[in-house]
Design a protein around this nucleic acid. Structure first.
Length: 568
RNA sequence: CGGGGCGUGGCUCAGCUUGGUAGAGCACCUGGCUUGGGACCAGGGGGUCGCAGGUUCGAAUCCUGCCGCUCCGACCA
């Protein structure tokens, strides 16, 4: 490819609405252009990268026995009505009607589609296991598309579905995929962590997320360097905390005027927040919820929602607190709360003694509160959010927390969909059983964006070779110069013939312009042909990542470039 | 949906407070000159000032309504 005809319109200035570096650089490097919020054109350079990422994914999926197929984007509502997700999925689903008024959606995922496909054609245990996948555009009408390709409304996803006869089979498929994902992201040159995750709306029994560590990530990931435990913070279990036991004192109610926050009460009564109980009010489809955690802890709403098995969970407003709970905002507590309120206590709370909490009465708190003696929660469970420095749930060493970008997510679905959709097989005893399923997704565009988040500098993108749009760019300092041009053309032909994907910057521009664009787009190697080195019969080969420059001989350049390329 | 910001050539923005007939830089086209880190000179093309009403002799500017984009919270590959 010659740069004079490469469709990669680079921008000198950063568009104002691009927030994160991958978005900025993809716009500036002429890789993507926005069509609507969360919907983008992929220009040739981006498409080359996406194809390379896809190819790596294909190779790894195929190596585990995956078979690629292609399912339709347009999906009839009946499929979704069978599992009940037509109503559950909500506004995030792009919906449309055909000319006869039949409901369709643009596929946000394909569990329903694949499961009904397989149930038509697979009858026997002899046909299992099966792994089917596709790489295709998915549609989710996100509440807030963000960060360029990081959270789009139309985005490319690889989704694979496994069908096994039992849990043991699923387990093998699941860990095969775990391995395939690890290999895929390693090959893409990413620094990532596979962490335990919440399985969310898709459901199922076990789940891992593949997180690329980057400050622009939207998730918090906690991990332990000692035992290698890792988890999304919304999922991370807690190491039990033993509280010091002391003789129980008598429960007392005290006046605490104008002390609404934990800090104010602690200050007024002279104790530390970690000595008291913090109560938070929520409202859910199960009714009003009072969540109790230690004063210095935070409630993990995901855990709480899972424990309650509710469809929605929101912070309660004053009406709920006053009318349904019979309490007063700022003075919430478990003692004397209305019977309708479901009290959920974090396990840590049950180990506390002679502690403090709100008295459900304006300007009053209880002191010397002892759980079990003074109140009995409806549910005791782990509902708190892990913090940096908390003991690792596995080994007890302090955990670290970093931001992560979720590039892949794998789930054990078990029979959640196969049972509802009647996707059954017959085993060797003639018995009918639902297939045991897993599903596995990779955000292809997000992987590309995550790579840029991790590999860039002030000049632009630094592609890992495996997914770079091209390998080498040749820059003659002056294309008008006959000698430079002749050598450039020769190298351009020979490098491509040798299997190095090479572009020639044949534009009649000043060298600076060409250097800036080359750095911005991030070609791993740049060969500069200029008068200085040419006097010595040499050209320069510059490594984008390190900036190091190698002077190589014009006559033997090919083997030198190949050697440099291998080291990348 | 709630709350902030913003809509002026392809991009970044000025002009708006205090109405007077639309600007700069970059990009683009032509010619010249130049060619080792986003040159320079001369000339040129390109804008219903988001849309619709209203006020006014006159609206990018003031008023009303709508639309769109963007950032902060619930969603997720």
């Amino acid at each position: 490819m010659r740069v004079s005809h490469l469709y990669a319109p680079t921008l000198r200035e950063t568009p104002a609405d691009a927030e994160v570096v991958s978005h900025q650089l993809m716009l500036r490097a002429g890789m993507i252009r926005k069509v609507a919020p969360g919907i983008y054109n992929y220009l040739p350079l981006a498409w080359r990268v996406l194809r390379k990422v896809s190819q790596i994914i294909r190779e790894e999926m195929d190596a585990k026995g995956g078979q690629e197929l292609m399912m339709p984007i347009a999906q009839p509502a009946e499929l979704w009505q069978e599992t009940g997700r037509w109503d559950v999925y909500g506004d995030e689903m792009f919906r449309l009607k055909d000319r006869h008024g039949r409901d369709f959606c643009l596929g946000p995922t394909h569990e329903e589609m694949i499961t009904t496909l397989v149930r038509q054609d697979v009858r026997s245990y002899r046909q299992l296991p099966i792994m089917l996948y596709q790489i295709q555009d998915k549609f989710r009408d996100e509440i807030r598309p963000r960060f360029g390709l990081m959270r789009g409304r139309e985005f490319i996803m690889k989704d694979l579905y496994s069908f096994d006869r039992d849990d043991e089979g699923l387990n093998k498929s699941y860990w095969d995929m775990h391995d395939a994902y690890s290999r895929t992201f390693t090959r893409c040159g990413l620094t990532y962590r596979a962490v335990e995750a919440d399985s969310g709306a898709i459901g199922g029994s076990g789940s891992h997320e593949f997180m690329v560590l980057a400050n622009s990530g939207e998730d918090d990931v906690c991990f332990c360097d000692k035992c290698n435990y890792g988890a999304n913070t919304e999922r991370a279990e807690m190491h039990p905390i033993e509280a010091a036991k002391e003789p129980m004192k008598e429960l007392e109610i005290v006046n605490t005027p104008n002390c609404k926050t934990m800090e104010e009460v602690a200050e007024f009564l002279g104790f530390k927040p970690e000595h008291a109980i913090k109560a938070l009010a929520f409202y859910s489809d199960k009714g009003p919820i009072l969540a109790l955690v230690r004063g210095d802890h935070e409630v993990n709403e995901i855990k709480l929602k899972n424990k309650l098995d509710c469809l929605f969970l929101n912070m309660a407003d004053a009406t709920v607190i006053n009318d349904l709970m019979g309490s007063a905002g700022g003075y919430l507590g478990p003692i004397g709360i209305s019977k309708e309120t479901i009290v959920v206590a974090d396990s840590t709370v049950m180990n506390m003694c002679n502690t403090e909490c709100g008295a459900n009465k304006l300007d009053h708190h209880y002191i010397n509160v002892n759980p079990e003696r003074d109140f009995k929660p409806n549910i005791v469970a782990d509902i708190r959010l892990i913090r940096k420095g908390d003991p690792c749930p596995r080994c007890g060493a302090p955990v670290d927390i970093k931001r992560g970008i979720e590039v892949g997510h794998i789930f054990k679905l078990q029979t959640k969909y196969s049972a509802k959709l009647n996707t059954i097989f017959v085993d060797e005893n003639g018995e009918e059983k639902p297939m045991v399923m897993g599903c596995y997704g990779i955000g292809v565009g997000r992987t590309m964006a995550a790579s840029i988040e991790q590999n860039n500098d002030k000049d632009g993108i630094i592609w890992p070779v495996a997914i770079a749009p091209y390998h080498v760019i040749i820059v003659p300092v002056s294309i008008a110069d006959e000698a430079q041009r002749t050598i450039a053309e020769k190298m351009y032909k020979e490098l491509n013939a040798a299997g190095l994907e090479t572009v020639l910057d044949d534009r009649d521009d000043r060298a600076g312009v060409k250097f800036k664009d080359a750095d911005l787009i991030g070609y791993p190697l740049r060969i500069t042909i200029g008068p200085k080195a040419l006097k010595e019969n040499k050209v320069e080969c510059r490594v984008r990542k390190t900036g190091e420059v190698h002077l190589i001989d014009v006559d033997t350049y090919l083997s030198d470039v190949q050697a440099l390329f291998k080291q990348l």
